[in-house]
């Protein structure tokens, strides 16, 4: 177990107090992403929802990774084609 620093810590802002879904451990990068994205989107979220949102985002990113790893040429067109 990590020893607590004796340094006085700055009070954490509510945004950084978002809990991790992992057994109450340290917030991880995904927790930070949820918090930051909520701020960027001006989307107030109840801290009680954080774990569920993180779970769903984790799932989406896992799905997206399956696509991200698939090599496509630079000139691959997105399926929806716009006509002016």
């Amino acid at each position: 177990m990590k020893r607590r620093s004796k340094t006085v810590r700055k009070a954490r802002s509510p945004a950084r107090s978002a809990p991790s879904a992992k057994h109450g451990g340290k917030p991880d990068a995904l927790d930070a992403l949820v918090t930051a994205a909520a701020q960027a989107l001006a989307l107030p979220i109840d801290p009680a929802w954080h774990g569920s949102i993180k779970f769903n985002l984790q799932l989406a990113l896992a799905m997206a990774a399956r696509i991200d790893e698939f090599s496509l040429p630079d000139d691959a067109e997105p399926a929806p084609v716009f006509h002016a």
Partner: peptide
């Protein structure tokens, strides 16, 4: 539904 949609808005 809410938490899936919120997560969806956060997908890069």
């Amino acid at each position: 539904v809410r938490d899936r949609l919120i997560a969806g808005a956060m997908v890069p």
